[in-house]
């Protein structure tokens, strides 16, 4: 059976999200006969050009439509279903970003098929590992081979496929009726000059132990010093110290940086679910019994407000 894979590109403001290249890396392990990337945008030229560079991509399909100015699952789904059927794909994949999480189940339901959430490892084109219970167990699932397979890729499990390709870009016109029942109102983006939390090689994060929005400044300062992105625990987000898009964990962002350094975070399983793939975890906590130390590669017991200034000075 030939495995022809369609990947839905995640993008914002004219640039491709790195999660797309991670999904390509996952798809490459499914012995594909072809990997096409579908760009649904108002004007997808720049995004398509970026996608065409990803190693392993056979074709980029660019479907422009004014209705795609803001990605809404209810409007994208009929287009994806049309593209999937037109191209006779065996697999339709998306990243497990909030874009993919919102969208892919709707696509699966419209195609009338089950879906695999969060592929973390590929055994064959229809057999995968995925995490359950906040990553505290892994199940191997077998998907039916006689129907299209819809899945999301756990991006933290795959490094982005490299660039250097120049796949052909085709414009695609899709015959799909789009509903009018869902309308975009606005997007409040926390503007930040710091690296993107989901892809940054270094992440510094703070928890309830940081104590306040003002105190978070010490975390930002340290992050800026070493060029790191900033993350947080749910407790810090709930308390209003930082915005929601900084939450790391089971229900926030799942990340795989080279360095994850956390201050005043206890290490609840829901938080750990987000950092299991970090290469080096460094924990600073004043409680020597804190569970974060059970997973930290380097642990230091102490008061974060004393340690951070000293650290900044000595990193030099």
């Amino acid at each position: 059976m030939s495995n022809k894979i369609l990947i839905i590109a995640d993008h914002l403001d004219g640039s491709l999200n790195e999660s797309t290249a991670r999904a390509v890396a996952c798809a490459q392990q499914m012995s594909p006969t072809g990997i096409d990337v579908l760009v649904l945008a108002e004007d997808g030229a720049s995004v398509a050009a970026e996608a065409a560079q990803i190693e392993g991509v056979s074709r980029v399909l660019q479907a422009d439509n004014a209705a795609n100015a803001h990605p809404m699952a209810a409007l994208l789904t009929p287009q994806i279903v049309a593209a999937a059927q037109q191209g006779e794909y065996s697999h339709v994949l998306g990243p497990n970003t909030t874009f993919g999480k919102d969208l892919m189940p709707r696509v699966a339901a419209k195609l009338g098929v089950a879906m695999v959430t969060d592929i973390m490892s590929v055994h064959s084109a229809h057999e995968f590992d995925r995490p359950i219970y906040a990553g505290n167990a892994v199940i191997t699932v077998g998907a039916p081979t006689d129907q299209v397979l819809v899945a999301s890729v756990r991006c933290a499990s795959y490094p982005a496929a490299p660039g250097g390709n120049s796949a052909e870009i085709e414009t695609l016109s899709l015959d799909a009726e789009l509903p009018g029942h869902t309308r975009f109102v606005n997007l409040e983006q926390a503007s930040s000059d710091r690296p993107d939390l989901q892809t940054a090689p270094k992440v510094i994060s703070g928890g309830r132990g940081v104590g306040s929005e003002e105190n978070f400044k010490v975390i930002y300062d340290l992050a800026d010093k070493i060029g790191a992105a900033v993350g947080a625990s749910r407790a810090a987000v709930d308390a209003g110290y930082v915005p929601n898009d900084m939450q790391v964990g089971q229900t926030g962002k799942i990340i795989s940086p080279e360095l994850y350094m956390c201050f005043g975070i206890s290490g609840a399983i829901q938080h750990l679910a987000g950092i299991k793939d970090a290469q080096t975890i460094v924990a600073i906590n004043k409680d020597e019994e804190a569970p974060i130390f059970e997973v930290a590669d380097i642990g230091l017991v102490g008061d974060l407000f004393k340690i951070i200034p000293e650290l900044e000075e000595k990193i030099g």
């Binding site: 919102d102 309308r183 109102v185 997007l187 409040e188 926390a190 989901q198 915005p243 898009d245």
Partner: peptide, 9 residues
């Protein structure tokens, strides 16, 4: 959402 807070009607 990953990018921040989106409002839909």
């Amino acid at each position: 959402i990953d990018a921040g807070l989106e409002t839909l009607e």
